[in-house]
Design a binder for these strands. Structure first.
Length: 270
DNA sequence: CCGCCGCCCTGCTTGC
DNA sequence: TGCAAGCAGGGCGGCG
């Protein structure tokens, strides 16, 4: 499940590998994965364009092209974005492949076919609905307090809402709530100022640490070079049903909040 | 504006 | 042991 740290790791890898390269050809093996404006053919539109830069926005990897357009890649749950050498075999379930003029290739693979590679036009506000970047300066404790005030939504559901904060998924929402000692089901408006400040700090810290460890490989996440991350080894609650809480030793429980598995410690999180 | 529901998919887990 | 059914999950469109 690629979230902010995983996508950031992929983006850093892509930056080193494909910035400056010119696209020779694009191939789409499964139509619905490659999304374009009406009447535009993905393959025809991309040939000859070049990669200017690669950035991350929320859980999306964005390849900015010389033409002013961009390729916005949403990996969803099982999407992979991998750079391949000239003769390297493409991963299973590769749906979109981009060949560069120097022979290197970029493959988008996705078992479940939920991910998308979208070609957006210059100036198209594709990310208008995305909220604040949690690792940016504008995500302050005060801003966070304002966002949560008056909301009845369980705090965990709020953390997962990409319209508020962009990039947090199930893993890091669970981890941050454990770190801050807050129950996932607590209505947002019930949190004290002190609790919101703890959560803010925990969220930023957990995300930073996970970026530093190149993300979590829970299911099948790998970076642009096909390498696994390291944060799955130091998770405190996510996926640790029945295991001991690293803080108090009590056993971690799994409950369901908003149709999503939620892991937490009944003793540490109040 | 907000929140909830169902859908998209396939591999893995569960239960008989 | 084998097989079918159930489940998981991020984002989005539809609906109230």
């Amino acid at each position: 499940m690629p979230e902010l740290p995983e996508v950031e790791t992929i983006v850093r890898g892509l930056r080193r590998a494909i910035v400056g390269k010119t696209i020779a050809r694009a191939s789409v093996y499964l139509k619905k994965i490659a999304v374009t404006p009406r009447g535009v053919s993905f393959e025809e539109a991309l040939a000859g364009d070049a990669v200017l830069s690669v950035i991350r926005r929320g859980k999306y990897a964005v390849l900015r092209l010389a033409s002013g357009r961009a390729l916005v890649v949403g990996l969803r749950m099982t999407g992979r974005l991998v750079v391949l050498g000239r003769r390297q075999e493409k991963p299973a379930y590769t749906h979109v492949e981009i060949l560069f003029t120097d022979g290197k290739r970029l493959a988008f693979a996705d078992v479940r076919q939920f991910g998308r590679v979208r070609l957006v036009q210059p100036g198209e506000p594709w990310d208008a609905a995305l909220g604040v970047e949690p690792l940016s300066k504008s995500f302050t404790p005060e801003a966070f307090i304002g966002m949560l005030s008056g909301r009845t939504t369980p705090v965990k559901v709020f953390l997962l809402d990409q319209r508020r904060i962009a990039g947090v998924g199930n893993i890091y929402a669970c981890e941050a709530l454990w770190e801050a000692g807050i129950r996932p089901g607590t209505p947002a408006k019930r949190l004290t100022g002190a609790a919101v400040r703890r959560l803010h700090r925990a969220l930023v810290e957990v995300l930073r640490r996970a970026v530093g460890m190149r993300g979590s490989s829970i299911d099948d996440y790998v970076d642009a070079r096909g390498l696994k991350g390291g944060f799955q080894n130091v998770l405190s609650v996510y996926g640790r049903t029945g295991k001991n809480c690293r803080r108090c030793g009590d056993s971690i429980v799994r409950t369901v909040i908003a149709q999503r598995g939620t892991w937490w410690c009944r003793t540490c999180q109040k």
